[in-house]
Write a protein that binds this DNA or RNA. Structure first.
Lengths: 234, 234
DNA sequence: CGATACTTTGACAACCGTCAACTTTGGTGG
DNA sequence: CCACCAAAGTTGACGGTTGTCAAAGTATCG
């Protein structure tokens, strides 16, 4: 790598524990780092992945955030996930070799680009990498299933409280503030993800604020009573 | 394998195309078959997997059916999936090495038992097996995400029509009748899976019958108007 | 054959989606 | 830098869908 074009390496990346490098020895880390490309920064609203496109790379979020969505038979966008730093994007394409959902940047976002063929080759040689890939997929799989239940069996206020709480936990796992963060997605995105209407999302945010559980300033959320939030989540 | 105790082999199993053997060459198939054990038959209500138990085997359903569920903080059972022949059970445990959900037999059920360590060893040597494992996980992952949306954005009648339609498709993919099948799960199981009350499930089944879309005789369902069912699913 | 689990049907109320109006924010071009 | 307009967000009123409670009917299992 040239001195003129310095990149962050897996060895120095603060997200490595959440990402593919987890539990890799220094030698394995080095080899993984070699196959990983750095993608040019995405601007807000850039579309990274389109459904139907052939799978060539998995992406790891280094900073920023994205939303994944599918377009239903009526042409409406349905949010299926939000991706934060350390998350891998693209696993759902391993099945058909084609992406099945879209991924769009919610803000300026930095990504690592992992060629899927090289990753497969390397996984054969590194058991720890293999295990971590399976672990990440397995987690995503279980989270998806659990989410169905979480949403199905909860009222609108419980869903939103759950959403905020789980975002808070995810930020904390990334070394960021659990009590104060920015919602990079719109209320409509949240509504779609939780299966609610925009109006309901807005009303409940106001209501949680009235209960002194959170404070909302546009996109900014402060959690003032995390216990209250957990209780509100059911 | 002894003559006295003849077992079905992967080579002869009618579910192999849906299962791990998919796209394996004869030699690979042979090797896979060697590591697979046949589990003793489960009776109705037998619990195959308990959350928290260490992951030792993945299971492939050869015949019969199971439900997967988690137990929520209030001790209530939440159904997260139903497993039919050809399905693999246990992927959600790859993350922690411990099972995270329960699996219980809904009827007499025959299973193959695949030691996870041997499977990992074999996957290193057989790219086609590796690809099929990832494909199965990726499919399950995407289905889970899609299900969230399907349920979130649909009314109760649409959810139930969707459920019946998707069961019908799954039976068809297994060479069984798409228009006539037995619901091995209870109404309460369906309700939990779809996020509805038992009463609503019961009412809607009656309503779909009144519309001559299906006929219901206890556990037996006949689909008389598959187009109507698809439309009812939204 | 009895007990228990499962299923169906009815009545009612509440939750939340829809429609509508308005305010605020953010981006674009002059 | 400001003006403008579209997009995003908020708040209110209303009605339908669906959960809850209740009760009766039916299958299943020991």
């Amino acid at each position: 790598m040239s001195e003129k074009n310095p990149h962050i390496h897996c060895q120095d990346c603060s997200m490595s524990e959440l990402c593919l490098p987890h539990h890799l020895d220094p030698q394995g880390l080095e080899r993984l780092d070699t196959i990983i490309q750095r993608h040019k920064p995405l601007h807000k609203r850039d579309v990274l992945i389109r459904a139907g496109a052939p799978l060539k790379w998995l992406y790891a979020v280094r900073s920023g955030s994205l939303k994944s969505y599918i377009i239903d038979e009526h042409g409406r966008e349905q949010i299926i996930d939000f991706h934060l730093p350390g998350d891998l994007v693209g696993f759902d394409a391993l099945s058909t070799g084609q992406h099945r959902s879209f991924a769009q940047s919610l803000e300026t976002t930095m990504l690592c680009e992992i060629p899927i063929d090289s990753l497969d080759d390397l996984a054969v040689q590194l058991p720890a990498l293999r295990r971590q890939m399976l672990r990440l997929m397995s987690d995503e799989l279980f989270n998806g299933k659990q989410l169905v239940n979480t949403l199905n069996n909860r009222t609108a206020p419980q869903r939103l409280a759950f959403f905020l709480y789980s975002l808070s936990q995810r930020f904390a796992a990334r070394g960021l503030s659990a009590s104060s963060f920015r919602l990079t997605m719109t209320r409509a995105d949240i509504a779609s993800y939780l299966g609610l209407s925009v109006e309901t999302v807005s009303r409940i945010l106001s209501s949680l604020q009235d209960q002194s559980i959170i404070r909302v300033e546009q996109k900014l959320v402060h959690i003032d009573n995390i216990t209250g939030l957990m209780e509100a989540a059911g």
